[in-house]
């Protein structure tokens, strides 16, 4: 079974046996790990001034920065951060990853069309629009959806380069969702559902990501039928066991290893949290992907990530049937 087959089977909540899949939404520590600047932190101001050969070399280099961590840490999926993000550059980056790895990895990229928590500078105006311009906000999201669907259809004409979209709009803070359930149900959930359905019709899986406490809107998210929900954020009080119990028959779950603890905890606490996540996630024999509750973020101690990856490797194995 390839990593991609394992990941897809897990998204379908099949009881695959063997090893629990793992992946990270972003692996930022490429410089420490392999001496390369992470693609999202590169600046290609002269991209189209470069010769075609130079651009190809840059894309080859970027592809390696996604592939090598996946290989080293046995990730089953790769999330690409295209930079530059024009269609041809994205397509070529995906082609190179496929050329180098065949169909080994499940490949995804960002594709959320729905509203996210705004930044502090815009949050008041944004909040006013929630009450005074709901239709305008729905139209904005639908416009974004149309653009993403156009991209999805275009990329589909080039073979199976991409397997899914990660829907990365954050909806929640630690204590609660930013959006009230009523507003979420009126303005966001209908577009989320259309987005997920639209990607599925075009042959793509969807993984809905959000930090924070999603519980007050989790029913609505699950009803939109994404294939998985990521990050089951323990800092937001998300309980993986409870989520498995309530939603494990409807959606796969990804994450829950406390990423804050990776920075602030002791090795013993980190190991215990990785073991807890594995134990809770593996309940029922499938439908769980081991991962941090956010990503391998800039500033994290790489050794800490290696530590949880080691625990996963040694202990993330389903019992023999």
């Amino acid at each position: 079974m390839t990593h991609k087959q394992l990941f897809e089977a897990t998204l379908k909540r099949e009881k695959v046996g063997g090893r629990v899949p793992t992946f990270e939404l972003v692996f930022f520590l490429t410089m420490e790990f392999m001496g390369k600047v992470h693609t999202s932190q590169r600046c290609y101001a002269q991209w189209y001034q470069m010769s075609a050969k130079e651009r190809e070399l840059q894309l080859q280099d970027m592809a390696d920065s996604f592939i090598e961590p996946a290989k080293a840490f046995n990730h089953s999926a790769i999330f690409i951060h295209p930079n530059p993000s024009d269609f041809n550059s994205v397509k070529r980056l995906l082609e190179i990853i496929r050329e180098k790895t065949g169909d080994e990895y499940f490949i995804m990229m960002h594709g959320d069309t729905t509203l996210a928590i705004p930044d502090g500078a815009n949050m008041v105006d944004f909040s006013v629009r929630l009450y005074e311009d709901a239709n305008g906000l729905i139209k904005d999201q639908e416009k974004s959806m149309a653009n993403y669907f156009e991209f999805a259809e275009k990329i589909n004409k080039n073979g199976k380069l991409l397997d899914g979209f990660a829907l990365c709009s954050d909806y929640a803070l630690n204590t609660n969702p930013f959006f009230s359930p009523a507003i979420f149900g009126e303005i966001i959930a209908p577009v989320l559902k259309k987005t997920i359905d639209g990607y599925r019709e075009r042959g793509f899986y969807t993984i809905k990501h959000s930090d924070g406490n999603l519980m007050p809107i989790m029913d609505m998210i699950v009803q939109c039928a994404p294939d998985a929900v990521h990050s089951i954020d323990p800092q937001g009080g998300m309980d993986l066991s409870l989520c498995k119990k309530l939603y494990g028959d409807k959606v796969a779950l990804i994450g829950n290893v406390n990423c804050g603890l990776l920075q602030t905890g002791t090795d013993e606490q980190v190991i215990a949290d990785a073991r807890r996540s594995l134990k809770q996630g593996m309940e029922g024999g499938g439908g769980y992907v081991f991962s941090t509750s956010n990503c391998v973020y800039t500033g994290m101690d790489l050794e800490r990530y290696k530590l949880i990856n080691k625990i996963w490797f040694e202990e993330g194995i389903y019992p023999e049937k």
């Binding site: 949050m123 008041v124 009450y131 609660n176 507003i183």
Partner: peptide, 14 residues
Amino acid sequence: RNEVFVPEVLVAAR
């Protein structure tokens, strides 16, 4: 008490 959410607080503050 989780009876209102952030946007409601923000528009009230405005």
